[in-house]
Amino acid sequence: MEELLTVKQLKKYYPAGKTNFFGKHQQLLKAVDDVSFHILRGEVFGLVGESGCGKSTTGRCILRVTDPTEGSVIYDGKEVTGCSPKELLALRRDMQMVFQNPYSSLNPRMTIRQSLEEVLSVHQIAKGKEAMGRIEELMDLVGLSADVIERYPHEFSGGQLQRIGIARALSVEPRFIFADEPVSALDVSVQAQILNLLSRLREELGLTMLFVAHDLSVVEHISDRVGVMYLGQIVEMGSVEQLFQNTLHPYTQALMAAIPVPDPAIKKKELLLEGDIPSPIDPPKGCRFASRCPECFAPCREEAPVLREVTPGHFVACHLYA
């Protein structure tokens, strides 16, 4: 399968701390630090990790919602990081985002019809009766009645608002969707409905998706391949089967151990992480997980591990597999 998106050595640093005599910040917060991966056409790539690991920032840099500090993002053969504002507007039709919080992602002063009409107007897709017809199609596509389009966001539940957010993203007929933890703010029963909706839309519309979450069980349900992030870097990457049946990195193993099992008769082995997460402003020179890793040994504190292919398609950054 052909690659639709390629990310190479992506970095995003934020200035932090005090400034020096010349007004420059003496410290940098390394939110994303040398991240590389690719996504095939029609594939769902899951990005998972603890809060603050840099997964959402990675997605925002890919869409140029946030400008990356360094690195390359190639979408359908075109470099995204060097796009002009005009080129970026055209690219927005192909690359869209579903936001984490459905309550704050819609303008509370605009009806649903106005919010969707605005998107269609900005991208010069449809106006008037043609726009209304498109909006009714979108409502049906996400499982909502067209009768609700004159309501305001506060009149909907979280699940309904997220469906509207998905409809807004699909209104410009994109090929790539960045779903930034789209179910984390929803009830468990509603989460399943939104995940099933995204899976169905992916099949019907042939979408390619970057799906960000901190819940591995959610990622397993929807993804084809998964990348695990820790403190701004990918520590393990592979297919869902490889990651869940042959977990390699100690951090991924800890995440797996935290997944609850709905059968009280089954007792899972507890794997509690000790120690503190290092600061992204001053990460250790060796493995960033070393201070919390139960398998840590001498090289882990001295040399940063490289993401290497252990088995075909299964990559891990750990000295245990050097």
Rank of each mutant, 00 (worst) to 15 (best):
L243A: 04
F244P: 02
D187I: 02
A213Q: 00
G159L: 09
L116E: 04
M237N: 13
Q233W: 10
H123I: 13
L138A: 11
A167K: 07
L210Y: 04
L120W: 06
S239R: 01
I112Y: 02
V226D: 00
E181P: 02
N101F: 09
H154C: 12
A179R: 03
R151M: 11
V122S: 11
T111R: 03
V172C: 13
G143E: 02
A179H: 08
T208F: 01
L144M: 14
V183P: 02
E118M: 14
E181I: 01
I194V: 14
M110Q: 15
A213R: 00
V226P: 00
L197M: 10
V188D: 11
Y103S: 12
S189P: 10
M139N: 07
D140V: 13
L243Q: 03
F156D: 07
G206N: 06
V119R: 09
V122N: 12
R163M: 03
M139E: 07
P108D: 03
E173Q: 14
M229I: 02
R168N: 10
M132I: 12
S145K: 12
V119I: 15
P153A: 11
A146S: 15
Q124G: 12
L170W: 07
N196L: 11
G206M: 08
Q124D: 15
L198Q: 05
K127P: 08
R134Y: 00
L216N: 05
G227T: 01
S104V: 12
R175L: 06
V119P: 08
I125V: 14
S223D: 00
P108Q: 06
F178L: 15
Q193G: 13
M110Y: 12
V142L: 03
R134E: 13
D180I: 05
E117A: 13
N101Q: 13
L201A: 10
I125Q: 10
L120E: 13
I112E: 01
T111D: 07
L161A: 10
I135M: 05
L231V: 07
L210D: 06
S121Y: 06
L170P: 13
I149S: 05
A213F: 00
E173M: 10
Q191M: 11
G232Q: 11
S157G: 11
G206T: 04
